[in-house]
Amino acid sequence: MLGQETIKTIKATAPVLAEHGLAITTHFYTLLLEQHPELWHVFNHANQKRGIQQQALADSLYAAAVHIEQLEVIVPVVKKIAHKHRSIGVQAEHYPIVGDYLLKTMKDVLKEDATDSILTAWEEAYGVIAKLFIETEANLYAEAGWKDDQPLVVTKKVQESSDITSIYLQRADGKELPPFTSGQYISVKRNVQGYDQIRQYSLTSVPTENEYRISVKAEQGGLLSNLLQSELRVGETILASAPAGTFTYSKSSNSPLLFISGGSGITPFVSMIKTLELERPERAVYLVHATRNSETHAFKQEIDTIVKNNEKIESTTIYRSPLATDRFDYQGEIHVDMLQPVLLKAKEASIYISGSRTFVQEVYALLTTYGVNSDQIQFESFEPALALS
């Protein structure tokens, strides 16, 4: 798909992107959003402010440069990002705009180092990668349960912990909801302070129910999460996408499943465990959940009931700062010694990690240092595109 000279040129820029990638992407978003302020309706304002989106794009550019002659290596990441793009409404016509500004910012930041041959090579490479995204997303749009965002009615709200609230949703027109696979999410949209704010929340219900349950953590300074928790009322409607996401387990495999979650990272696993209890009660499942203490431990009673009724499902609790009355298995920051007993029982397990970027990185490092094959591990960070290998 790309000529050898183009591949050679792109690979040669990898060290430059490792050094200057963040400067390029920071300048890129500044220019793009100044010239196309309508895109503020798509981008996450908090991630822009914290620099998370800029770092994610820088990581993606570097990965593309390293793997440019084997783009199949980045296909799983492309699929993950494409699912999110579909859920927030990214369209094919956005890609030429992004490509133009990306090349402009490379030239602005790298100056004389951005030679004509480098810019031409990246223009060609971007075209190939953009085509991959566009085609993948076109298929996802065709497969989606509905077109565009649809209004869902809030039927119930339940406080799950000190910082997580579950919101139950049904279609405003009374029709059936599109099916989903446990581990997926929906994007919800609300206009806040003059801009559409779009966020993804894991579905914590069972796919067979004609009701979605999303579970929202109130983030410090989070425009939408705090609105959903404190202001959204039962009976109101909110716009939502059809389900999306690739963080799902194999239904055809009989291998044990090990779920490791930090804080709100437990949310995709709730749906997985509830679904496995109904559909595959004989499959071994191990949940290791780390959180501050019982006040922040969402779904504890729900999971404890499942564990009590199914001997094939086990749960391990790690509290960083337990209260005097708390009951738990380990105290402190998650460590390999806490995981070792489960890893010994769950040999050959498919391992899933969910939580913040830092939590996922730390657990991934613990597992691979312990000797777990990276092919056994999948992860979901509640921040933009995280690559660990």
Rank of each mutant, 00 (worst) to 15 (best):
V336K: 14
K345I: 10
Q331H: 10
L278W: 07
K312M: 10
A349G: 05
E279I: 07
G332T: 04
A349D: 07
T267Y: 01
E333Y: 14
S255H: 14
A240E: 06
H289V: 10
I273H: 11
L339V: 03
I303F: 12
D304H: 06
E333W: 12
F299I: 01
N293P: 03
D337E: 15
V342H: 00
D337M: 09
Y319D: 04
Q331N: 09
D326C: 13
F259C: 15
G265N: 02
T246K: 01
K308E: 15
P281E: 04
Y249M: 11
I313P: 03
T317Q: 08
R283K: 12
V288G: 04
S354P: 10
A324H: 07
P341Y: 13
E295D: 14
T325Y: 07
G263I: 02
A290Q: 05
L339F: 02
Y352F: 13
R327Q: 10
Y352T: 04
P322A: 13
K251F: 03
A324S: 12
G355M: 06
G262R: 03
T237I: 08
Q331A: 14
A284M: 11
G263H: 05
T237R: 08
S315L: 14
F359M: 05
L323T: 00
T325V: 12
T325N: 12
D326P: 06
A290L: 00
N293Y: 02
E277F: 10
N254K: 13
S271C: 00
A284C: 10
T316N: 01
T237S: 14
P322T: 11
N310P: 11
K300E: 12
N309T: 07
D329M: 08
Q340E: 12
S294E: 15
